[in-house]
Design a protein around this nucleic acid. Structure first.
Length: 498
RNA sequence: GGUUCCGUCGUCUAGUGGUUAGGACGUCUGGUUCUCAUCCAGAAAAUCGCGGGUUCGACUCCCGCCGGAAUCACCA
């Protein structure tokens, strides 16, 4: 980041500098492999590059790293694309929309990797390797026996065959040294030659490994920032020596820490039941809330701001303020944040997003009514999914459940007949109301006086008789919305049941 | 085991030599003439992993240790 800014600064004062020069444009990428859904633990490696690209007016690229045929999952690419779209992380170049450096599927770029590989072979920096796996196991054992780390470069075949399809190609480490590099998140890092080995460039099936493929692609696609998970740090020396061998300039690196599961200190993974991003969205976590939460899990600009829009994030985000240690995924904070976002939505927007969360019976009511229900519930929703159980009694007759009344802590000391009597008085006084929320409150207050009961007693009874729900909005608002006919009939039913 | 990274309230974090170590979530208490939630006020909660240095002074700098994590695939 720092390096990059310096370069940018210098160029901006050089006479030949042009703002339209694509070489100076920030280009970041998200490069998932299509092995399944995107889970909470790995969206950050899409959000951060997106933010970096957008804040400099650069491009965000989606590249599908589908070289592992065994782990390939049909439909995963579409799922990844759909998830990113739902989050609004739109890419400027990618498999579906193409771009200057197409194709964006690695399997379609095979010949490209072979060209680069040939350069390496010509330089004597790569060799074919047909060592059988069993043999490699032997090597490993012998290294272990000598208490030495296993490095393939200690066992290079003496007479490697000519490289051709069907044989793996290995990188030949010739420059054993300590590598130093700067990481935009982690700071200055270094690793010695123990981390350097002859790794596979091209697999037996002719496709490149990640280790080779991503470097070729990033160079070809002019990627300026490589932002990815921390697990790649230990491979950095290998990558660095490959950049040198290929004579490719190093991009800016940023390795972001893992998100940890609720228990233990292990990184969040599908195996531990990490939910997919779409699972959260489908349960009514707002895109804004999820983005806000994830971006701020491990990032803080130094202020006490908690609620961030994407636009604000684009402005304020910087890699050097990303935390260096892993962050635990805390769902309760996500829920809080979601509530905050729900409350910030205007009613029409909330209504549009709530469509799939209303109970079936809501269809029998018009839009205006549904919106009024939503308005009463807006402050109470933590997740849109809760809308269903919280609102059913507004749309259909609730199941009469007398035990809720008789076991209520404020009401259990009263006789049924007395409770029925309160409800009768309620019916009487309701004859005079105009059914506005304000007037209903006045009438209810009058009723408190005439019955000489506490609000907790009288109001609880009426509330329960109308909803048979454990909690509900303010009584007057609820009555105003339910309307004269339904309130009267529900009270009547309750009286008869008591 | 080798290599590498990390270590401030339960959780997410602020903090870059001198602070009553700040904020947020969660928890608890009280208020908002009823429930739930919102909102408001307040409380408890971190001997800054441990031990040495350097310094008048260290959470902040240095060293050692301990603890946790990652990686060591023809997976990414």
């Amino acid at each position: 980041m720092y390096e990059h800014n310096l370069r940018f600064f210098a160029l901006s004062f050089s006479p030949n500098f042009s703002y339209t020069n694509p070489m100076n444009q920030t280009r970041t990428r998200f490069a998932p492999s299509p092995t399944g859904y995107i889970h909470i633990g790995n969206v950050r490696s899409a959000i951060y590059p997106y933010l970096i690209a957008k804040q400099t007016g650069g491009k965000f690229i989606l590249r599908i790293e589908d070289t592992d045929r065994n782990r390939y999952v049909e439909g995963a690419t579409e799922l990844i694309e759909a998830t990113l779209k739902r989050l609004g992380l739109n890419w400027d170049e990618g498999p579906d929309i193409g771009g200057k450096y197409a194709p964006y599927f690695q399997t379609e770029r095979k010949s490209l990797y072979h060209e680069w590989a040939k350069k390496l072979i010509e330089k004597g920096l790569a060799y074919a390797d047909d060592t059988p796996p069993e043999q490699i196991e032997e090597y490993k054992k012998s290294s272990m026996a000598q208490k030495k780390p296993f490095l393939f470069r200690d066992f290079r075949p003496k007479n490697p065959p000519r490289w051709q399809e069907g044989v793996a190609l290995r990188f030949k480490q010739t420059n054993l040294q300590r590598y130093h590099w700067h990481d935009a998140v982690m700071g200055d890092l270094s690793a010695g030659e123990g981390a350097l080995d002859d790794f596979i460039l091209i697999k037996k099936d002719g496709l490149p490994t990640y280790n080779f493929g991503h470097i070729v692609d990033d160079a070809e696609m002019k990627i300026t920032h490589v932002i990815r998970g921390q697990e790649y740090i230990s491979s950095m020396p290998n990558y660095l020596s490959l950049y040198d061998a290929l004579e490719i300039n190093r991009p800016i690196f940023a390795h972001v820490p893992h998100i940890l599961g609720k228990t233990g200190n292990k990184k969040l993974s599908k195996r531990d039941g990490a939910k997919s991003v779409t699972d959260y969205l489908d349960e009514g976590i707002l895109e804004e809330a999820l983005l806000n939460f994830l971006a701020c899990l491990g990032w803080n600009d130094g202020t006490e701001k908690e609620i961030w829009t994407m636009a604000e994030l684009v402005q304020a985000f910087s890699l050097d303020k990303v935390q260096q240690s892993g962050a635990r995924f805390d769902e309760t904070k996500l829920l809080w944040l979601n509530g905050q976002w729900i409350r910030r939505l205007d009613l029409d927007d909330l209504y549009a997003r709530s469509q799939s969360f209303f109970p079936e019976s809501a269809k029998n009511h018009d839009e205006a009514y549904q919106k009024q229900v939503l308005e009463l519930l807006q402050d109470r929703l933590k997740v849109l999914k809760d809308l269903k159980t919280m609102s059913t009694y507004f749309f259909e007759e609730p199941q009469t459940d007398l035990s809720m009344i008789l076991d209520n802590k404020f009401l259990q000391k009263y006789e049924k007949s007395e409770l029925a009597n309160w409800l009768k008085q309620t019916l009487e006084i309701l004859e005079t109301t105009d059914w506005t929320s304000d007037d209903l409150q006045m009438k209810l207050n009058q009723l408190l006086e005439t019955t000489a009961k506490k609000p907790a007693e009288l109001f609880s009874l009426i509330r329960l008789a109308l909803s048979y729900a454990p909690f509900s909005p303010a009584l007057n608002d609820m009555m105003a919305l339910l309307g004269k006919k339904i309130v009267k009939s529900r009270l009547q039913t309750a009286i008869e049941s008591l």
